[in-house]
Structure formats: structure tokens, C-alpha cells
Nucleic acid binder design. Structure first.
Lengths: 123, 123
DNA sequence: CTGAATCCCTGCCGATACTG
DNA sequence: CAGTATCGGCAGGGATTCAG
């Protein structure tokens, strides 16, 4: 695809990527995939917490006191399903489960950074 | 805030930023601001379309045929409110309104690129 | 300790019809 | 051409309760 001649520099990759030609919000669009991964209240905060290091269920509850069990469970399942984090069961009693980001999940760091940077930028 | 000693390199800015200590999804969190801006079906596609250059209402409808009038209006209002785009009315008949990204809106390019890149990355 | 199941409520999205 | 008004369905999120 040839670059368009617009006033400012053409941004590589996205608007000019052939796969960026979708006319509907399809689930296979990479942007949709990422947004679906981060979708829902509390999701980014859980990821941020795990970017600091692995955590148990209880530690996540302590770090995010206003987050209910249901939503925390939902988020952990959602992120596990997305390949963002691993659930590591420790045998024995009391049951302890550690959550840690996968390498794929750790790569969300730059994404959150980009979101943070734009949100910090004054209009 | 001192850097933590974790196994991998500490990511600058986000997990270690003092303002990143929020324990709830507050509206003032930069990450929330950006996600709120991009929230809702079709929003990113409208932005992508405008990253390619300014468009009229009709041109946006043609580019995104499955997008209804109501939602398109909603998205344009939402993005205008967020300072992402400018609504440029041309006087006379027929009424023509051009939509163009503001400088702030153009800076969403790298954000969408980051979302695209992560979504393209295989787990 | 670490969740899953249930209930209810709210807010978004889409369809349709109508206006300056 | 460029929208707004209204309505209904449905999924997301919170509180509570129960289970392994």
C-alpha cells in the first residue's frame, strides 16, 4: 500500500497496514484483542500490581481493598485465559496460589505506559 | 519512591510512579483517562479513520458502513469532548462538517500502535 | 485461603423514526 | 447532509452467600 501524502509524517504500521483496513470491530483485530484483554474495571490495576512482582490472591485483595472477590476472580480468570498471567498452585495447607505475569503479560508494560503517557498529556 | 529489586529490569514510569499507587480505578488516573477516551465499540476505528486524514460525516459512514448514525454521533461527540478531534462546520448549503484530529488526538497514533503491536504478538 | 454461584441493577449499544 | 429522540435487549459489575 502506498503512503498517502498528508501534511504530517505518515505513521507507520497502523493506518497503513493492510490488515488495518477492517470496517468493523472484529475480534481478530489486534487492537480489539488488546482492548478485550484490558477490558473491564480493575483489570489494569491488577496487571499493574503484578508488574511489580508476583502476588497471592490475598496480597491482591490487600493491595486493592475495594475490589470484590467476584470481580477479582473474574479478572484473574480473564487474564489467565488471555495468556497474561500464570496461576501457580502451591501444594499443602493452607492453599496458596501465586499469580505471576507470563512473558507475554510482561509485555503489557509498554502498553500501559503508552496509555499512561497519553492520559498525562494535557489536551 | 525507591526502585524495587525484582528479577527483570524495572520498568520506568508506571509501576514506580508515585501517582501509580492508586488502589481504585479513579477517573483521574491517566490510564483510565485514555481508556475512557477509547471506550466503546467503534471508537478506535473512527480514530484510525481520522488518522488517515480529515473526513466528513458522510465519508465516515461510507468507511464504516455497519456503524449506525446514533453511535457515530455518540462517538464523534465523545471524542470531541475528549479534545481528540475538532468539528469544523462549513457555512452554507448543503451543510458540510469536517472532522479532524487535534494535535492531542494525533498523539493517539502511538497508543493505537502499542495496542496493535501487543495484539499482534503471539502469546 | 481461594475462589464459584447467584441475584439484581445499571449503562451501553443497536434499531427505528424523525428534524434543522 | 448531518444529525437527535426514544426504546428495548443484553452484558458488566457489585454484594452476598456458599464451596473445595
Amino acid at each position: 500500500m502506498a503512503h498517502q501524502t498528508v501534511g504530517h509524517a505518515v505513521r507507520p504500521g497502523l493506518p497503513d497496514d493492510p490488515r488495518a483496513g477492517v470496517a468493523e470491530p472484529t475480534a481478530s483485530c489486534p487492537v480489539e484483542i488488546t482492548l478485550a484483554t484490558l477490558r473491564g474495571r480493575w483489570t489494569t490495576l491488577v496487571v499493574r500490581e503484578l508488574l511489580r512482582g508476583e502476588r497471592t490472591y490475598s496480597e491482591l485483595r490487600e493491595a486493592l481493598p475495594a475490589l470484590s472477590d467476584k470481580v477479582l476472580s473474574d479478572r484473574l480468570a480473564q487474564l489467565t485465559e488471555a495468556g497474561v498471567l500464570d496461576r501457580l498452585r502451591r501444594p499443602g495447607w493452607p492453599p496458596r496460589v501465586r499469580y505471576a505475569l507470563t512473558p507475554h503479560g510482561r509485555r503489557l508494560g509498554p502498553v500501559l505506559q503508552a496509555l499512561w503517557d497519553w492520559g498525562s498529556d494535557r489536551p
